[in-house]
Structure formats: structure tokens, C-alpha cells
Amino acid sequence: MSQATRTMDIEDQIPGTYVFDGEAAMKGYALNKMCFSFNHAENRAEFLSDEDAYCRKYGLNEEQRKAIRDRNVLEMIHAGGCIYYLAKFAGIFGLNVQDVGAQQRGISVEAFKKLIKSQGD
């Protein structure tokens, strides 16, 4: 991939961390634009009435549509999603940042909450 659109070198990458840079912003534009639309209740309702039609309306590619269908946050990030916009998608299903964090870690929400608290000791 082009170095010009990246903000850090591969060797500097932080494990388990995705920097939402120019490359991701271009890749994820349609997905993030759809999630941004969820600021409005009528758009959330339209999405729920026909999810795939709404995804097509915003021009999501197959990878992004699959990630949405699977409710898989890591897949959305790999497809260029930015967590600030994805949180609006998660909110439609009543999922908060702890639910989303636990899903990405592959652990239960209870275990995730314990992990958070333990770092304060």
C-alpha cells in the first residue's frame, strides 16, 4: 500500500491497535458515512427495516456488508471503519463500548469489565 496515505511505518505499529489514517479513511468512507447517518432516528429506522438495502444505498462493498451482517466490529475496522462512527451502528442494537470492547478482545463482557478494573490496582 502507498506510504503516502499512512501515518506510521509498519515496524512502528502497536499490536491490537489500528490507526485511522488516510488509507483507512479512503477505504472505509462508505461504511463510515452510513454510520454517521445513524445520528438521525429516521435513518436508524430505515436501516432496521431493510439492512442490506440501506447498505447498498450508501455503496458499501461486500466486505463491509458482511461485517455489518455479522455485527463483527473487528471486521468493520479491517474494512476501514472508524470506531467513533461504528459506535453509532452498535448503539442501534443497544451495545455500548464495553460490549464492543469485549467482542474485539474475544472475552465476555464480565471478563472485560474485570480487566478494566484490574488496571487501576
Binding site: T17, Y18, V73, Q104, G106
Partner: peptide
């Protein structure tokens, strides 16, 4: 805090 990625939940007191 970190919301995204496999490192979600990271805190550095």
C-alpha cells in the same frame, strides 16, 4: 483508553 482493536480496554495508570 482504547475503544478499538484487540487492545480495546487498555488503560495505563
Amino acid at each position: 483508553h482504547q475503544l478499538d482493536g484487540e487492545r480495546a480496554g487498555f488503560i495505563n495508570k
